[in-house]
């Protein structure tokens, strides 16, 4: 008797496992389409092969100039302000030369240069390690080079944060909404437990607008298609001396820093 009961339980277990498994298979492969309809890009959408940014720090005259740029981005994207650095979320911020371009410093470098500020954000790398690491493709690379986040899909494993060598990613450790001072209805907020970062304002590019930071930068941030030989970014990058953060890692950052500054193309 007891053997039969055991057999019964085993079979019941198997049937349940099978049921769960197959229901999953069915939902996983369910046909997607619902009606004879389609999708297209917005009429104003700006196409590009590889969006890139040049940072010209000589155009930022004061701390206030930088704050203005940061504010523009963080306000628009509902980036919360947490009182502690542990939960901090940032899309674009400033750090000094010494830390931005970490590694192997000239010890005689002037204190002033050492601590001069630089704008930092996600580099939208051409070979992004964060995209490689993500197990759900919540972080993905668009055909225009932008490394984007699908907040709906992110499971919050933070593998991408470990993979990004630039510290560009933030995680929503807490519900961000109570910490947003002034709500912008132009962009959704995030749910707790997902990763976020700069998205090169792809929602604005779709409306034919430049990124919010670029707009407020007085020419300090130059944005364009690196693939287009006539674009301003391409001209600067090909003729002036620019540096990038940690180029030795081979991620090919799309954010270039113009050294020396001055007038450009």
């Amino acid at each position: 008797m007891s053997i039969n009961r055991r057999q019964f339980l085993r079979r019941a277990g198997m049937v349940t496992a099978l049921g769960i498994g197959s229901s999953f298979v069915i939902t996983g492969f369910r046909k997607k389409d619902a009606a004879a309809s389609g999708y297209t890009k917005a009429a104003k959408d700006m196409p590009a092969k590889r969006w890139a940014m040049v940072v010209d720090m000589s155009k930022f005259k004061s701390e206030a100039d930088m704050e203005k740029v940061i504010e523009a981005c963080h306000k628009l994207h509902n980036v919360p302000k947490f009182p502690n650095t542990k939960d901090e979320i940032k899309w674009i911020w400033k750090d000094d030369y010494h830390h931005t371009f970490a590694g192997g410093h000239n010890e005689y470098l002037d204190e002033h240069v050492m601590h001069s500020p630089f704008m930092v954000t996600c580099n939208h790398c051409e070979n992004p390690p964060c995209v490689r690491a993500c197990p759900t493709e919540a972080t993905f690379q668009r055909p225009d080079g932008i490394v984007a986040m699908d907040f709906h899909r992110c499971i919050g494993c933070r593998f991408c944060m470990a993979a990004c060598p630039f510290g560009a990613r933030s995680f929503n450790f807490k519900d961000p909404r109570p910490f947003i001072e002034e709500v912008s209805t132009e962009y959704p907020t995030r749910t707790p437990g997902v990763v976020e970062k700069c998205n090169f304002c792809y929602e604005r590019l779709a409306d034919g607008l430049m990124p919010a930071c670029v707009e407020k930068s007085n020419g300090g941030l130059i944005f364009g298609d690196l693939d287009d030989p006539n674009s301003e970014v391409r001209k600067i990058v090909s003729t002036k001396l620019t540096i990038r953060r940690k180029p030795e890692l081979g991620t090919q950052p799309s954010v270039y820093y113009l050294v020396g500054g001055g007038e450009h193309a």
């Binding site: 490689r132 197990p135 499971i155 929503n172």
Partner: peptide, 29 residues
């Protein structure tokens, strides 16, 4: 330990629904 570490544990099935063979996490699973 993986599950308790997730920010969005309810979405864990996304790893299977959207398999990403470029991610080591996929093979680890």
């Amino acid at each position: 330990f993986i599950v308790v570490d997730l920010g969005q544990p309810m979405r864990i099935m996304n790893v299977i629904l959207h398999p990403s063979p470029h991610s080591v996490m996929f093979y680890d699973m």
